[in-house]
Amino acid sequence: MSAPPLRAEGLGLQLGGRRVLDGVSLTLQPGQWVAVVGPNGAGKSTLLSLLAGLRTPDAGRVWLRGRALGTLSARERAQALAWLSQQGEAEGDIAVHDVVRLGRLPRHGLFGAPDASDEAAVQAALAETETLAFARRRLNELSGGERQRVLLARALAVRAPVLLLDEPTTHLDAPHQRAVLRGLAARARQGAAVMAVLHDLTLALAADRVLVMDQGRIVADGAPADPALRAALAQVFEHAFSIEALTVAGQPRWAVVPAL
């Protein structure tokens, strides 16, 4: 039996005298996209940074495709795992196409020459994020939402089997949020393991699986249709909303309605 794309056991981290992550264990499966939700300060972004190897936990371990994350070279890790930061760098006098092309560096290396397959991956990522129309423009000419889509395109261009995305829909309008979620679902159907931190709970409840975090721990983990998952979600947000069942195109969906 092959190892899961990503697995973590007992992850913990203390920052500034506070335990921001406490005994978190999880396994990401291929073909599944997972939303991570929770109140501010729950540890969501910290968890993703540990899974991506950007921080080192003071407890627990992470395995990427069956290998301890710390034993992989930077290039091996970058080939297997693509990362989108919540506050990614998206400034400067550099063309959009060249930013997205950076996603192919793990494959051909800093001194290697990109080939036709690299360019195909770049073009596909630009098309998927609807950034192809301004691929020759400079980052400093773009709006916040346009820059966010460029950074997402860079992550998608890696074509890694694991995608970790921290707030990928930030600054995006409704049509582009929909495009991002459809893209994540499509990547999962192609066999990738996708994890995304989302603040929009209605969007999160469109995922295959939802992790609910609170005070540095995972307090619920399940499908959106699971009543226990929805009850835990409402509880950690102090019942500030209700979760209503809908039927869209014959499929069950869930909508979050603020309790005003």
Rank of each mutant, 00 (worst) to 15 (best):
S2T: 15
R7C: 14
R7F: 08
G10H: 15
G10S: 15
G10A: 15
L15Q: 15
R19N: 05
V20R: 04
L28V: 01
P30L: 04
G31E: 03
N40I: 02
G43Y: 03
T46K: 01
L48A: 03
S49H: 14
A52L: 01
T56D: 09
A59E: 06
A59T: 08
R61E: 14
W63R: 13
L69M: 08
S73F: 11
S73H: 13
A74Q: 14
E76H: 10
A78S: 13
A78D: 04
Q79V: 05
Q79M: 02
L81C: 12
W83E: 05
S85N: 07
A90I: 04
E91L: 14
D93H: 14
R101C: 11
R104C: 05
R107T: 13
L110T: 12
G112Y: 08
A113R: 15
D115S: 11
A116W: 12
A116N: 10
E119H: 13
A120Y: 12
A121D: 07
V122L: 02
V122N: 01
Q123S: 11
A125Q: 04
E130G: 15
T131K: 02
L132G: 14
R136I: 06
L139M: 12
G145V: 11
E146R: 05
R149E: 10
L152A: 03
R154P: 08
A160S: 07
L165K: 04
P168C: 03
L172E: 05
H176F: 12
V180G: 03
L181A: 04
R182G: 14
R182N: 15
G183P: 08
G183H: 07
A186S: 15
Q190V: 03
G191T: 09
G191Y: 11
V194P: 06
T202Q: 01
L205D: 00
M213S: 07
Q215C: 07
R217D: 03
I218Y: 00
V219C: 04
A220E: 05
D221L: 06
G222N: 09
A223K: 14
A225M: 08
L229T: 08
L233W: 01
A234E: 14
V236L: 03
H239W: 14
F241L: 00
E244M: 09
A245W: 02
A245T: 13
T247N: 13
T247P: 08
A249C: 11
P252Y: 07
W254C: 00
W254V: 01
A255L: 15
